[in-house]
Design a protein around this nucleic acid. Structure first.
Lengths: 232, 232
DNA sequence: CGACGATTTGAATAGGATCAATGGGAGTGG
DNA sequence: CCACTCCCATTGATCCTATTCAAATCGTCG
């Protein structure tokens, strides 16, 4: 892999604390690859051959069952996915495909587990990363079980707005079809949910969303740090 | 704590591989307590002071937001809960209350983190436990997003039936109100879902459920190892 | 410019929630 | 042991949210 990409990966909290030698050993067998949009990287049920790290672009985690399909999460730089399957040497529970042209680092599972055994510091970092992943899914699950579709959208907009600097405007980081599935609704229903939010200062113009009355929107959304905060 | 309870706790995979000295150190500060039914053990948002291990009875993990409440999981012996919050030294994301009279082991968070730092083997066991917890929530989330209420119930019944020895009959391990919330529906809707399943050989008699046509039920439920299997 | 996919809108339907009322056990106290 | 009470579960009726199906519109990319 190209050495110019290494510092970025190294800075990931997952690798931040580990020995140089361990990191080098891990990267020795890793390779960095660019994939076109809409390419299925992994399929649920397959053995976990690699740990994936998104360094550019965006990857969609999704699941299928009985002819249905649903977006489970979107992974943006720099984020890992399917760590749990790799550690357990189990099959993937989710499929993944690029949402856009993306650069992805692949580390063979065996090597991850190998270094995990050898490098204590890496093992600890993995625990933190795993705990974060776990808590993220719990929050997603709470979001879905405790809120209506409109509330989920409102809170997601507030969240994206914060991530993008609270300028009063935000750009959807992926298409509406995917956003709808992520929020657990149909594209039609998402469109209607946006209309429902118009009286609360939400202006939709393609991928650009204006938030003109955040107070009002928050009154409706009732954001909850135990669901919407990324850090806690 | 009583020493007669130790072997049971020790046999938990989380503690199985650790040194005697570490285990003793961990148990030194732990205490075992019996709680009556319907007692709230922890509240979401509170700092994670203890790691909890259910040794007898049953504990409900649930979440509240905006006046609503939903059951997130049921923990039966011998199972741990809120491990992630303890490791991260963060606040609990879920509340917990006893579903019945229950015996619970409490280990101060600091001690868990302390031994986690000192005992490498314990650290690795924790990773496995965390990975399992993570994958469980992912499966719950898939269940909710990819299935209808009736399908969720059908699959849950098949699962309980397997756990209880496939005798053709199963006993609900907690009341229907809780089951409904766990499955993401109202008690009324659960009752109707049971009626919907009657033509598929599902007979309800209080807490006892007879499954008289598993083939037919499975045709409806379409169980999926990537959602319903506890092990994978 | 034309075609295709994504989004939006409309209409009808279905699934689930809510409200209200009734039945049924389990536990309590006499 | 029995009556009472309370809470859970069930059933019915209605309402509401969200899905489905259909069609129009918008945008983008070749």
């Amino acid at each position: 892999m190209r050495s110019s990409d290494l510092p970025q990966v190294r800075s990931l909290s997952l690798f931040d604390d580990m020995d140089d030698s361990s990191f080098d050993a891990l990267m020795q067998t890793a390779y960095l690859q660019v994939f076109p949009a809409q390419l299925e990287l992994i399929t649920e049920g397959d053995p976990a051959d690699f740990l994936y790290i998104v360094t550019e672009g965006c990857v969609e985690l999704f699941a299928r069952s009985n002819g249905r399909e649903s977006t489970m999460a979107m992974v943006r730089p720099v984020g890992t996915f399917i760590l749990a399957a790799v550690l357990k040497d189990a099959v993937y529970l989710m499929s993944a495909r690029t949402a856009q042209r993306s650069k992805v680092l692949l580390i063979p599972s065996e090597n991850v587990r190998d270094i995990f055994q050898k490098d204590e510091q890496f093992a600890r970092s993995i625990v933190v990363e795993l705990a974060n992943c776990y808590r993220s899914v719990v929050k997603e699950h709470k979001d879905l079980k405790l809120r209506s579709a409109v509330e989920r959208l409102a809170n997601r907009l507030i969240r994206m707005h914060k991530q993008q600097g609270e300028s009063g405007t935000l750009t959807l980081p992926f298409d509406k079809r995917t956003l709808a599935s992520l929020l657990g609704m149909t594209p039609e229903n998402l469109s209607r949910a946006f209309n429902t939010l118009r009286p609360y200062g939400v202006d939709v113009d393609g991928m650009t969303i204006g938030l003109n009355d955040i107070k009002s929107l928050e009154t409706l959304a009732k954001p909850n740090v135990l669901i919407d905060d990324q850090l806690t």
